[in-house]
Design a protein around this nucleic acid. Structure first.
Length: 960
RNA sequence: GCGAGCGUGGCGAAACUGGUAGACGCAGCGGACUUAAAAUCCGUUCGCCCAAAAGGCGGUGCGGGUUCAACUCCCGCCGCUCGCACCA
């Protein structure tokens, strides 16, 4: 018996598959009635090298793709590269190489690595988003969106990442820090290119309900992100300004402020003004204050208005009131991290302004500025209704503002009910509220809005947390935005015939010169205005790379089309993606943008896809995690680290690291390590550099003890990665694939361990051993007797039992793959192998059963371990490729159980078992159960009160 | 704070719409083969009681409940993970 040699077998089959072209997706007219299946894994960023952690995602998609193909589907399973992005520029700065060279080198290396895995990918459709042949179409699409009014420019406060020197979308800011750099995000005012995602806010939200093959978690996250709330806008008329300032403020207001620039240009005719914010400057001194609320029913409980610190009126007042100016400044220094928000006290300042209550002209309320009001949500102004909102109540108590309850909790007595320290925020009955008295919360909301509309003091409205997507990035390595700035004509679209607008290759990257190399380029941006032919400059911002990944799945349907992003018919045939596989980290960003983009493409005529949904089914897989290792440093000890911020002291235990800098310490808190003068940055070691023996870890070859750190997601930075090439060389791609799918449910993380690898390796050898033994063993003297092959219920004996088990394995594995229970499918395969190994029967019946079971096994493991399966299939005399052989069908007669083992319980405890024919009548079962000796013994001296027979399941006898 | 998910042997985990808890793998233990080891194969492995077997008792984070029957359903806690977060 020879050892299975993956080093020969694996490349051999990959070559044969490639030569036969079995992975190519068929054109719709070639498919001849085959249903289509578009299987896609989130495409990788070409960061350098692939490690085994990446392989899980692709292995899962590949199992599904191969399974669908075996089941007669026309499968599209493509691969490409999300190739624009910052790491390329950082590499350029660090190593003086060009981002393009770096990216394409990485792509070449990673393509070879992916091929090593034996994935059934149609490589003829490979794309890279940095290829002008790709981004040309993206630029054209940008122009089409622009024409449709889905693109505009806006001067707005943006999230500025001071490390990456670029703007971030709201979705890219996590806990006040850049999602990539981790640096605290600053606020800047910049002219931005925007995508009007909010145009689809309602549809994006409603359609979530139809995405029933998406994880609930992701649907929930998207719903929260869009954050729809229905309520009312209310306009509060100004009653008075504080006397000394009133005249002055009113006068300034009269002058119109002049802050907002006039709209400079209109592109594509009147339908789509490219600049927003060019409206008539509001007069903050006279215009009513607009407030958003979801609870207009509590209007009679209002006791104050509160404005955001950066609300225009607050700013206006601040010009005359140093204390208000100081308040604004104080609020600005406050951090935005969760810890800061939690600790920050609610503070405010009376602006001296008074407004009239919309329902009662004589009722005047004070206007405050308050730090807890957000300028970015709603209108940046609220009315405080302390009895019905905890925050308002705290605020009112602190500043001695009045409050009265207006919502009576169910069952409470109006005469005695009072609000103390807890606001009542639920629904109830309205009282103390004039014409709303006696109404339920729900009815009162409607009634209040009706009244507001009648008085022209407000209207019903819907607010979203979702905001438009700012796509401008001040970076080089991205898709150039096809727009031209002309002194005369304003901002005009680049002519379509000039696309692609290509990135110049002769650019410089210097660490000390932040900013955009495109902007610095001596000639690139200078061009002619397409309208007046005068001197003009190109837009030097590039598109957020999330734009690139928002439509790549559509490009795959027609990847090499030079004239269009894709053929409408082809895209309509393949889309939506039937199975999308990727990490949860994209639950909001990428998936939301892609959903927006698909709708926009549909509405611009690119696609026939009524739903606008790109991904019919989504699976979010868990990561591969691994222990981390750190070199022990002399003098480095664990220490208690005190972190003070505000009045609170938090103690943590850890290693003080020199990489901690003040800027990473939020809000002026101080990190102290009481005994520590030994700040040492950790030196991470790769698993290869570490020897594990006797439960301790040592640096390989040097016998220096190593600290074993927490188990974390495999990542380059922590070095806890296992390189794919080396692993495949040592153990083979099949072992890697099998292992990442076997140990944990796919949605959960799986820990990469040496013992797990050993198990997978052992399985490969065992399967091969059985196949070889079967083929080499002396064939039985007589040919298989007919009864061995018969698939009816008359069979008996060990060979027949094996046949039954094999056919049950088919049924089970098929179900398991359908439901993404790969770990269970793996367990079933082990059971089958165990059973095959156990059959010691050299008769022709045994031989026949073993051969059949082995062929079934080869087919069942083919999606997981395609190389091994192929080698076994061939050795067993299977026809063609196992990869393209039709998926086995379980013979119902064999898979079905004709007898069942029924446990007999007495009072819920198992006391015996009986064998009964499947579907045997209840009365018969009952007799058998009561006759069971052990059961009878338990029943002695008791009277039977009830016998429950669950057909083919269980018998429970209730006795006392 | 709000929302979601999870909690099962030494470990990763199974258990279909409530019906034999711990399939399968790893590690462990015992054995075979070997001069020996590795590899491979066979057996065994939730805990407790009993000399052993047969058998019994307990057992799915904790406390209650529904049910003939609960890992599964309901109520109340505890713990962990993730997401959102001063959202008006």
């Amino acid at each position: 018996m020879s050892r299975y040699n993956h080093r020969e077998v694996e490349p051999k089959w990959r070559e044969r598959w490639a030569r036969a072209g079995i992975d190519r997706a068929l054109a719709p007219d070639e498919a001849k009635g085959k249903p289509k299946a578009y299987i896609l894994e989130m495409f990788p960023y070409p960061s350098g090298r692939i490690h085994v952690g990446h392989s899980r995602n692709y292995a899962m998609g590949d199992v599904i793709a191969r399974f669908r193909r075996a089941n007669g589907y026309n499968v599209l399973h493509p691969m490409g590269w999300d190739a624009f992005g910052l790491p390329a520029e950082n590499a350029a700065m660090e190593r003086g190489i060009h981002p393009k060279g770096w990216t394409y080198d990485n792509i070449a290396a990673m393509r070879e690595q992916l091929k090593l895995l034996g994935l059934a990918i149609d490589w003829s459709r490979e794309i890279a988003t940095c290829d002008p042949a790709y981004y040309k179409h993206q630029q054209a699409m940008f122009l089409a969106f622009w024409k449709k009014g889905l693109v505009y420019r806006k001067k707005q406060k943006v999230n500025w990442d001071p490390v990456d020197n670029t703007v971030l979308a709201n979705e890219q800011v996590v806990d006040g820090k850049g999602w990539r750099s981790g640096a605290a995000v600053e606020t800047r005012e910049l002219e931005q290119w925007m995508f009007r995602v909010t145009a689809y806010a309602d549809d994006l939200l409603d359609a979530i309900g139809k995405l029933d093959k998406w994880p609930d978690k992701v649907r929930l996250m998207q719903g929260n992100w869009i954050g729809k709330s229905q309520g009312a806008k209310i306009w509060w008329d100004i009653a008075s300004f504080p006397p000394p300032l009133a005249g002055e403020v009113a006068e300034r207001g009269e002058a119109g402020g002049g802050a907002a620039a006039p709209a400079p240009s209109v592109a594509f005719g009147d339908t789509s003004p490219v600049n927003e914010g060019g409206k008539q400057a509001p007069n903050h001194a006279r215009d009513p204050i607009e407030v958003f609320t979801t609870r207009p029913d509590t209007l009679f409980g209002a006791s104050f208005l509160a404005l955001a610190p950066d609300h225009p009126l607050t700013k206006t007042i601040a010009e005359f009131r140093p204390d208000v100016a100081k308040f604004i400044a104080d609020c600005a220094t406050l951090g935005t991290s969760e810890a800061d928000i939690e600790k920050a006290e609610k503070t405010g300042i009376d602006l001296g302004v008074r407004v009239k209550h919309p329902f009662d002209d004589s009722w005047e309320l004070p206007v405050w500025a308050a730090n807890f009001v957000l300028s970015t949500y709603g209108t940046g102004a609220i009315f405080g209704s302390p009895a019905g909102d905890q925050r308002d109540l705290d605020f009112a108590r602190k500043y001695d503002l009045p409050f009265k309850p207006v919502v009576l909790p169910p069952g409470a007595d109006a005469a005695t009910y009072a609000v103390a320290d807890e606001a009542f925020t639920d629904d109830g009955t309205i009282y103390n509220s004039c014409f709303l008295d006696g109404l339920s919360t729900k009815d009162a909301i409607t009634r209040a809005i009706d009244e507001l509309v009648k008085l022209e003091k407000g209207e019903a409205t819907t607010k979203y947390r979702l905001r438009d997507w700012g796509v401008s990035r001040q970076r080089y390595w991205g898709c150039p935005i096809p727009a031209i700035h002309c002194g005369k004509c304003g901002i005009v679209p680049a002519p379509e015939k000039d696309l692609p607008i290509q990135l110049p290759e002769d650019v410089t990257f210097e660490r000390d010169k932040p900013g955009n190399p495109l902007d610095r380029h001596p000639t690139w941006k200078h061009t002619k205005c397409p309208q007046c032919s005068g001197k003009a400059t190109r837009e030097t911002d590039t598109l957020d790379t999330f734009v690139d990944s928002s439509w790549y799945f559509a490009r795959f349907t027609d990847a090499q089309n030079p004239d269009a992003p894709f053929d409408k018919k082809l895209a309509s045939y393949w889309l939506p993606v039937d199975q999308y596989v990727g990490g949860v980290e994209h639950a909001v960003l990428h998936l939301l943008y892609a959903r927006f983009f698909t709708r926009a493409m549909r509405d611009c005529g690119y696609l026939d896809l009524p739903s606008g949904e790109p991904f019919a089914s989504l699976f979010t897989q868990g990561m591969v995690v691994h222990e981390t290792y750190q070199r022990k440093q002399r003098g480095l000890r664990e220490a208690d680290i005190e972190q003070r911020s505000g009045g609170r002291v938090e103690k943590t235990t850890g290693f003080p690291a020199s990489s901690w800098t003040q800027s990473q310490v939020q809000g002026g808190s101080v990190i102290q390590a009481p005994r520590a003068t030994y700040f040492v940055s950790p030196t991470w070691l790769t698993p290869e550099e570490v020897d594990l023996r006797d439960g301790s870890a040592f640096e390989r070859g040097r016998d220096i003890p190593v600290d074993v750190g927490p188990i974390e997601k495999m990542s380059k930075s922590k070095k806890n990665v296992v390189d794919l090439d080396a692993f495949v060389h040592d153990f083979g791609a099949d072992v890697a694939r099998w292992f990442v799918l076997s140990d944990s449910p796919p949605e959960r993380d799986v820990e990469w361990t040496a013992s797990g690898v050993k198990g997978a390796w052992g399985f490969v050898q065992r399967v091969w051993g059985l196949v070889e033994a079967h083929v080499e063993g002396s064939p039985p003297a007589t040919p298989a007797r007919p009864e061995a092959a018969r698939s009816n219920s008359e069979g008996a004996g060990a060979p027949y039992a094996l046949r039954q088990l094999a056919h049950r394995a088919i049924a089970s594995v098929t179900e398991d793959i359908e439901h993404f229970r790969f770990n269970v499918a793996v367990a079933r395969s082990y059971e089958l192998v165990n059973a095959i190994a156990k059959l010691k029967d050299d008769t022709s019946a045994g031989h026949f059963a073993r051969g059949e079971a082995l062929r079934i096994l080869a087919q069942l493991i083919a999606p997981f371990m395609p190389h091994l399966a192929e080698e076994c299939w061939e050795t067993l005399g299977g026809e063609g490729f196992v990869a393209t052989a039709p998926w086995p069908k379980a013979d119902p007669a064999l898979a079905a159980r004709n007898t069942v083992t029924l446990p007999i319980q007495v009072n819920g405890k198992k006391r015996g078992e009986i064998e009964a024919a499947k579907g045997a009548p209840e009365a018969e079962i009952r007799e058998m159960a009561l006759a069971h000796p052990a059961v009878a013994q338990f029943l002695a001296g008791q009277s039977i009160r009830k016998v429950i027979v669950v057909p083919d399941r269980i018998v429970n006898i209730v006795a006392s």
